[in-house]
Amino acid sequence: MKIGFIGLGTMGAGMASNLCEAGYDVTVHDLRRENAEPFEQRGAQWAPSVAELATNVDVVFTSLPGPVQMRTIAYGDDGLVENLRPGTAWFDLTTNSPTLVREVHEACTERGVKLFDAPVSGGPEGARTGKLAIYVGGDEAAFSSHSDILNVIGDQVLYVGDIGAGNTAKLVHNCASITIRSAIAEVMTMGVKAGVEPAALWHAMRQGAIGRSRTFDRIGGRYLREAYEPASFALELANKDLNLALELAEHFDVPMELARVAQKDFLEGLDRGWGKRDSQSPLALQNERAGVHIKLTADEVQQVLDRG
């Protein structure tokens, strides 16, 4: 089976590497020619164009920044829709717009191509180690026939439903994550301003019903330490996901008051030039508004985590 992989950025490089490691016949393409060189050294082939890659593979993966890039890759005489052979499976790993994915799916179906939206969750480290959740939307029978390949790049491959369901699930996940973090900053500043020490307050929060699910652990490495660089998940990327989630909610007439509050903070962070900083960086805006300084050392964070 011949596999094509388009998009060798931070996430795509890790996933493509695991496919090469598993012994698959892989052909790669990226806007930056140099990004492909490590894969060629491992036996992968280089395709100078999307069209050339499309005509020579049985399965294609795309890992792109967002909807604009997916539309560009999909359409035109040199795009995937025109050049993939009937029977080819296309897994778009991009966190994307469900509306666009359904549009491209319709065009693919007319040509006998099986498109799946399959966004991933787990970050760059998960991409390198294969510890990713993959939320898949599309034809269930065709999905099942490609499970072996998907299991190479992710350890939690989840079939969610029809086309568009994968990105809906991913956007729900990311929007919840973004919104919860904003709520945490709000209550943290309230508690600290009321006189509770940050470490004690955080420990108390973690021992409550929600806290025991470890919802709050992830803020220890970033928000509580004011450590936003280098980014694990950049603000500009999280803002794209939040915007996509809000578009989806608007489409179904779902009110998203807290998410829109979070969006305002994201936009302010971007205006301050924080786009490359971690997506938790806008939580610092709540600290400013409340007139509270919260900063734990790495040792203080670890001490709380060690308490269980």
Rank of each mutant, 00 (worst) to 15 (best):
N56A: 15
L244W: 02
L80T: 07
G123M: 00
P65K: 09
N56L: 10
P124R: 00
N151W: 02
G220R: 03
C108L: 04
S63W: 03
V59R: 03
Q263S: 08
G9Q: 11
T109C: 04
P48M: 13
Q303H: 10
N174E: 03
T168N: 09
I149L: 12
R277L: 14
E82F: 04
L31E: 04
G14E: 12
S232R: 02
D306F: 02
S232I: 04
V192C: 02
W274C: 10
D241C: 07
V187P: 05
S232L: 08
R102M: 07
E140S: 12
H105I: 04
L158C: 14
C20E: 13
A204T: 14
T27Q: 08
R289I: 10
M11V: 10
E103V: 15
G23N: 10
L171P: 00
R102D: 00
T179W: 00
V101G: 03
G137H: 01
A142E: 13
R260P: 06
V26T: 08
E247K: 12
S97E: 07
L224T: 08
E21C: 09
D306P: 00
P38A: 12
G191A: 13
G7A: 14
D148Q: 13
R181V: 12
M1W: 11
E37H: 15
Q45F: 06
H251E: 14
G123T: 01
T72R: 15
E103F: 14
A200G: 12
T95H: 08
V172W: 03
E268C: 06
N239V: 00
E110M: 07
L93R: 00
L31M: 13
S281E: 02
A194N: 11
L84E: 07
G166H: 04
V120Y: 11
V28C: 08
Q263Y: 05
N96V: 01
E125G: 13
D278N: 05
K131P: 01
N56W: 10
A262Q: 09
I219G: 06
G137N: 02
L80P: 07
F91P: 05
V187T: 14
E226T: 08
I3N: 06
L171R: 00
G308I: 04
A36L: 05
L8P: 03
I184K: 01
D58P: 05
V192L: 03
P282R: 07
D78T: 09
M256A: 12
T62F: 01
E257S: 12
T179F: 00
G43Y: 15
T55C: 05
H146T: 08
L150G: 01
S17G: 15
L270N: 04
V301R: 03
G220P: 02
F143M: 05
V160W: 01
T215W: 09
T99F: 08
R42S: 15
A165G: 02
L171Q: 01
G130Q: 03
V304Y: 07
D155N: 15
D25P: 05
N96C: 07
R33P: 01
A74P: 05
L296E: 10
G137L: 02
S232G: 14
N18Y: 09
A185Q: 07
E226D: 11
I178Q: 08
A74F: 03
E197H: 09
